[in-house]
Nucleic acid binder design. Structure first.
Lengths: 188, 188
DNA sequence: TAGTCCATGTAAGATGTTACATGATTCA
DNA sequence: TGAATCATGTAACATCTTACATGGACTA
């Protein structure tokens, strides 16, 4: 029977890394702890159960590596199902909800975009992200203007921090689109 | 017996809002869904259980509002323990771990800073945040420089997005410190 | 009377955190 | 021999998500 649970952000991070090259749980933990993907937990209590779930769902397959010395490692690879599921995740349209609640997951999706998604997916993703940011930022600005006088100073500043963060993201999005436009001769 | 569980980010958001003024679960849900705090879930399945936990732990107290018509509301107030717990949370030092894994919670802490924390806490918070950002950003830059050539293009771009987000946060932090310096005559 | 808003709640289920446990190998 | 590193795992616990349930009052 097919499990109908949506995979977590961690699950997709694992799938993406394993697709890049087969890796063990330990490899993945080390990757998280020693690269900017440090924003993911490298705790064994998160990673090993997540890998087992992926295996149960048929998205990865692990096999024990034979080697002398050292404790045996289980190396995981993506299955065809795993690759399909990852692609499905990558090509979902960018929703406001993602921008508001889950920007990190969105950027994770993008990070693997030109390795595993179809041609043009990265550019489409950026266009969608641009659209949602360009719609969301003014609504935050309007809230600030209307409520300035009723908000405590720190609250006001905190909101400005959020707005400026989204504005930086918007600038990045434009620059990234230009990159793809140039590199791939993509047109709107 | 005293419960030793750390409260969640949502729990502290609820405590801060209830401290501002007594509110019902419904008030809190509406606040989340209609302001930039939309980044919190307004789902009843998150909010009502969280309020019950806070009450169990003695951090809030709810009482049923008497009124004709409409269904009764339970209005919550902070207890002395709730206020103490919130202050304790606010004055924790800024750690790199917070910057890397939980920047949103950090900004929530700041958002209530000049209402409920002691004088000078906001400025100290900003100094700590500045220090951690100024230390973390170069380590991301160095990773990018060392690994540029081995990273896929989208991965590189995603990392740049993260760096630029942190840089925007750093600029904001400096500007906010200047605000407090001016307003309060605070000195380093 | 049907729909919408006010208002609070629970149930099932998955995921994540922290802490603990274990065992092999290498190196000082 | 003790410490560090490689390597995988489990247990307890809390929290969150989604979906469902309920019921009063207002209004078109």
């Amino acid at each position: 029977m097919i499990k109908r649970n949506p995979n977590s952000t961690l699950a997709f991070a694992l799938l993406g890394l394993i697709w890049q090259e087969p890796r063990s749980g330990y490899d993945l933990r080390k990757f998280f702890s020693s690269t900017p993907m440090i924003s993911f937990s490298d705790s064994p209590g998160a990673i090993y159960p997540a890998l087992h779930r992926l295996e149960l769902r048929g998205l990865v397959r692990g096999h024990v590596e034979e080697r002398s010395g050292l404790r045996r490692r289980r190396i995981f690879q993506l299955t065809a199902r795993g690759r399909a599921e990852f692609k499905r995740w990558q090509k979902q349209p960018v929703k406001r909800h993602d921008v508001v609640r889950n920007l990190d997951a969105l950027m994770l999706r993008f990070a693997f975009m030109d390795q595993f998604a179809e041609k043009g997916a990265a550019f489409r993703f950026l266009k969608g992200l641009h659209k949602e940011l360009a719609a969301y930022i003014p609504s935050l600005r309007e809230y600030l203007i209307s409520n300035r006088d009723y908000m405590p100073q720190a609250g006001r500043l905190a909101l400005e921090s959020g707005i400026q963060g989204y504005e930086a993201q918007l600038r990045w999005t434009k620059a990234a689109m230009a990159t793809y436009g140039k590199t791939k001769g993509e047109r709107r």
